[in-house]
Structures are given as C-alpha cells and as structure tokens.
Design a protein around this nucleic acid. Structure first.
Lengths: 351, 351
DNA sequence: TCACAGAATGTAAACGTTTACATCGGCGGA
DNA sequence: TCCGCCGATGTAAACGTTTACATTCTGTGA
C-alpha cells in the first residue's frame, strides 16, 4: 500500500496537520520543519489520496465528459479541445464514451457523482428531462451541440444553419440557380439545421421550389452515391449539389466520376464539415469547416467560468461560427491562401 | 447539496447500514424494508458519492489513461478501443493528454492516486525510472507502444519491424531490387523499428548497400516531399520507395506528380499506418495497417486481467501484428477483397 | 522576571461511504 | 417454558484527508 499522510507525519516527527500544511503551503510553518516534512514525503514517495482529499474539500478538480459513439475526427478533436482548456486550468477529464441508449447514459451520469465538479455533455440522445432527473441539482453542465429544449442549461452549438446558407450563397454567387440538396437523417439535429440554412439561402437567392430539389440521405457515403443518380435525373438538371456532410459529398463525387459527369464542369459539389480527406479528393471538395477543437475548448472555458460563479451563474446559449472553404469542386479557383469567409458570431434566441 | 445516505436513511426510517445493504443488494434485508428504502432514495434522487465509497472499498472502477499530444487518428482510435474494453467491464476512464515534458507527466501521474485502479500509459517521453519513481508501487500499469527498458512493466507494442519488412518483401515480390527508404525521426522508437525491418528485409531480399538508399525524414509531409528530390537523384535510380509513415509517403506522391514521375509506373511507393486518407490518394497508397483501436482494447483487457490477478501478476510483453494493404501505388493490382497478409502474433524477448 | 502577542504546532471532528460486530426479535424443538 | 439459532437491523469504526480550534512555544517590551 502507498504511504498515507499519517506515516509521513510519523517519519517527520510532526502531526498530520503540519504535513498537510506543508504540502499545501497553507498556514504558518517553520522553514526547518517544512524541510523535514518534505524530505520525509519524498523518501516515502508520498502521493496524496485524491479521493480522500476531495471528500472534504468538496472539489475534485475533474470534469466529466459524456460523448456519443462518434467517428474518428469529431470525437478526437472535441476531446483535444476540451483537454487543452481543462489542463490549462489544472483540471482532469473523466471521459465516458459511446452512449447508445438512455440507460447507459444514465449509469454513466450517476457514476460521476463525487468524482467531478462539472459536466460537458455531447449526447444527442440525452434530453433535458433525462439530464435533470439524473443530475444532482445545481451541477454545472455544458451542453455541446445538442438540441436543447429550454434555457435550463448552458449550451454551445455549431452554426449549422449559417454554414449551410454560406455554402449555398457561395454557389449562387458563382451563378448557380438550381442547387440540389442531399439531406442528413431526419432525426438528426445538425441535419435539420443545415436543411433550414439551405432553404433560407435558396429562397433568398431567388429560388422557389426547394422541395423538388431535396434528396433524402443519411450522412453515409453510400447514401451520397445513391443520391447522385436521383439528382442527375432531375429536370431541369441542377447545376450544383450541396450535401449535408462531406461523406455524402464524397459519395456524390465517386458516383459522378463513374457516370462520366464532370465536377465542377457539369455540376458543382459542396459538402459540410471539412473533414481532412476533403482537400485530397479529385477535385478537392469545397466544404464548410467547423473547428471542433475550438468548440470543445470554448465549452470547457465557459464551464470553468460557471464553476467559479457558483450559484450566481445564469445559463446562456452560444453558436460557434463556421468557415466556408472554397475548393475546386464548387467551381471557384481558390487563390492561395484559400478563400475563407468568417461569419460574425451570433447568439441564438430560441431553443 | 445532493442528499447523502444519511438523509435517505432518515426518510426511510432505517439506519444507514440498511440503506447501504439495500442499494448494494448485500446482506439480508426484508422485502418491505427494501421497498421503503428504494422509494426514499428515488424520491430524494439519491446518488452515492463515488469518492467516499472508493475511499473505503479501495476500488475506484476507473482507469487512468496517459496520452501524448498526438494527431487525430491515433489519439482517437486508441481512446475508442480503450473505452470499449473498459466500458464492457464497468470501468471509467480518467484521461490526461498532451504531456510534452516529464514534469507535466509527473503531475498528471500524481493526480491519479486515489482516483484510479490502474494505468494505461502511452507516452514516448516517459521512461521506466520516471514512471516507477512517481507511481505508488505495485500499481498495475500497461505500457502502450513505448520503448520499454526492462521487464518491470506490462507492455504491448505494434510490430513495426515486421510490418516494415512485410512491405519491403511485397515490393521485392513485385520485382523491385533497389528500394529506397525515407526514415522517421532518429529519436522515435517506431521509426527506428521500421528502419530495422526495412534493412532486414532488403538484405534478405538480396540487397547489399541499404545505407546509400536511406533518406532522413521526420514523419511530416514536407520531409517526404523533400525526400523525393533526393531519391530521384540516386544512381542507379531506385524503382521503389518505402516511407516510414503515410504522411511522408503522401509528400512523396505529390512531389513525384509535380516532377512528372509516374507512380507506380516509374517508381513504386509504400507507406506505413494506413491512415484513412491513404485509399483516397491518386494513386491509392499501399500501406501497412495497424488497428490502433484493437491495440487500445487489448491493452485495457490485459490491464483488467492484471487487476484481477493482484499481486500474483507477472508482467509480459506483446506485439500486435500488422496488415499489409496493397493498393495501386506499389504497382500491384489488388484483387477484391484487397490483399491482406496477417502476421502471426509473436512475443518479444528482449527489452 | 513576567505577561503577552503571535507564530508554530497539535487535536480532533468532519466529509460520505462500507462493513465487522452487536443487538433484537421470532420461531422451532426439547 | 426455555434455549438456541438465525434473519433482520442498528452501532460505530474505518478509509485518508483538511481545517477549526486548542495548545504550546518563542521572543519582546515593560
């Protein structure tokens, strides 16, 4: 067993209180005593017991992170950002991933009590009621890219709608008038927001019947591949397609290539997410970039601030801007450095 | 504040011991009492305090994970694998990333005491002595892809040498005799192992002067790009290049394309890691695949086993096999499904 | 020399659990 | 009726810290 503070005290010939004082540099203690204690602690390789300490101090210096079972990039980038901010403030991360159903999320949630000071939740499956039912009340929580259903919790979201609108506007600016859209799953919040952005921008650009130009997809490469056949049969044929994510855009690209349809010559293509592969496609894929790491870092920063405020904290909602990355697939010839439009940060008002 | 077990006891009109017994289904308790207690706990939304509990049970049901500051894929895949295995056994993960120097790793290490039952360490910067100096002795630790310097700790590594050798053999089998190598950083363990594999396989394939065919790189795309110029000037000119990782191989590809050197027509190219982008390159890049997620899962599984064995556990070392993924860049026309060679699992004997 | 202030240190309670042990009550067998 | 057993429950100690409070020093000014 590892040595306890008591053994250090005995070895140094002082009381446990003094050892505690020395190790936390709190309260007055003579230089000579301090040295004796430190020496003893080093000799015994003493390391304080975090659990015991947090039991009485009521602080754990840890933040719980609830994540869905996501694919590569998103998952890792989010954690990286969160970790960066947490580490800077001396906090550790208790991570819990892959929550398929509500029950799993619930047990994970409960296991966090007494181990963390706050929570970052990024689980589309978890709704407000579930959350507040399983959370010790008054816990600081930051919702990440979830469909929030009220003002009860702090939240931070990606500006999906604005990003989608920006991509459509970009296509309109290049002269496109008939712009098709491959949607994401209907029950996915991001997908719905992107659809809204698409519709808004198309209508603003002079379009009328967006419905006839929408093809249902499900965020997979295959669904993008299949959507290509539908799009190409539309009459009059669209001159551009905006896919709700890059995977589907990649599916489009390979389908078009097989069909002998040239991109962007015959039809322009745009995606969303700017996954790393995007710039390596042929032609390089235009997309909308989201800095997931920044999203995570920002969430953690705000959570830590909320932690400081304590009970006087009032929850707020924030949306993170996106960047339009114009590459060859949309038909523009990007100057170097690549065109990048920055949207102004905006606050969301409703749900 | 959240309710404690004491308040539940009072609400149910029983003692704390009984509440504990009910909630842990331990010891005899009457059905009627049990129901009363459960009702009270639900009503008060009682959630046990993990820290307090682990203080006395001496189990935290959490595993600490020490990671270096790695790029996307590796980081996330490793965590995903680790998390998968941990979750299955009901364990949580205390993650701590980005440890540049030894001091950072040390503080992270110390903060884990009393919070975790074991450790998975994947920090090339952390060596054996540092580790054992900061670890409560007798702690279960699993070293992941580190240069282990003894038999003191459990470890699990990627078969870098075997994978590199397999790639070279593959090129030899395609008829190549002059195979150049772009190395990784000299102080990187993976890079050194891959170099060893390259040398061994080249010599085994009838080659003699490997030294003249080695170009120094540093795992970055740029260094691969620069290496292309060196390789192309070698006389007689190599017919194949094996880069120690995919990033450098991608650098090679773009340089060759700019030079008008055809791949694989004029020169074959192979990489290592099989990053997701590899199959999207033109031509698709042949590589050596490592299942990082499996690496992580395997590590966690073994750690949990070690945890069970307790003091009667004897550390062992293991290397994880790699898979050769032959794509067009090496000149083979992969049949479908793509050629994949599985190496037999081997145990390492030394260091 | 003495009182006293203030610095240095010690004592013990508290944090929220689990669990060994003590207690209590009811029941069956003698 | 009494004894002993066993199931159900309560009591209190323990886990390893921090910290309010009590106590003991040390030095200073009168």
């Amino acid at each position: 067993m590892s040595p306890t503070i008591r053994e250090v005290a005995r070895a140094a010939g002082v009381s446990v209180a003094t050892v505690s004082r020395v190790l936390n540099s709190k309260g007055p203690v003579r230089e000579i005593t301090s040295r004796r204690v430190r020496a003893a602690a080093d000799r015994l390789r003493y390391v304080p017991h975090g659990g015991a300490r947090s039991l009485i101090t009521r602080r754990t210096n840890a933040i719980g992170v609830l994540l869905p079972d996501l694919f590569g990039e998103f998952f890792s980038e989010a954690i990286r950002g969160i970790d960066r901010a947490a580490r800077g403030a001396g906090y550790q991360l208790l991570v819990s991933g892959s929550h398929g159903d509500r029950a799993q999320a619930q047990t994970a949630l409960r296991a966090m009590r007494g181990r963390v000071d706050g929570l970052v939740v990024m689980s589309p499956g978890v709704d407000g009621p579930t959350l507040s039912a399983n959370l010790p009340e008054g816990w600081p929580v930051m919702l990440l890219n979830c469909a929030v259903d009220g003002a009860a919790f702090d939240s931070i979201n990606i500006d999906n709608e604005g990003g989608a609108a920006a991509m459509v506007k970009h296509l309109v600016a290049l002269g496109h008038r008939r712009i098709a859209h491959v949607t994401g799953p209907a029950d996915n919040w991001d997908a719905r927001e992107r659809l809204r952005g698409y519709r808004r921008a198309v209508l603003a650009g002079g379009g009328r019947d967006t419905l006839a130009l929408e093809v249902a997809g499900d965020f997979t490469e295959e669904s993008g591949y299949r959507a290509a056949a539908v799009v190409i049969e539309m009459r009059p044929r669209p001159t551009a397609v905006f896919a709700a994510n890059d995977s589907m855009a990649i599916g489009l690209l390979s389908a078009f290539q097989e069909m002998g349809v040239r991109v962007p010559g015959d039809i322009a293509v745009g995606g969303f997410d700017d996954i790393p592969i995007a710039r390596f496609m042929t032609p390089p894929l235009s997309s909308v970039a989201v800095s997931i790491a920044d999203l995570g870092a920002r969430a953690m920063t705000r959570l830590l601030a909320a932690l400081k405020d304590g009970s006087r904290h009032v929850p707020s909602h924030e949306t993170l801007p996106t960047r339009l990355i114009a590459r060859r697939s949309s038909g523009s010839r990007p100057p170097k450095p690549p065109t990048s439009t920055r949207h102004s940060r905006s606050r969301r008002r409703d749900s």
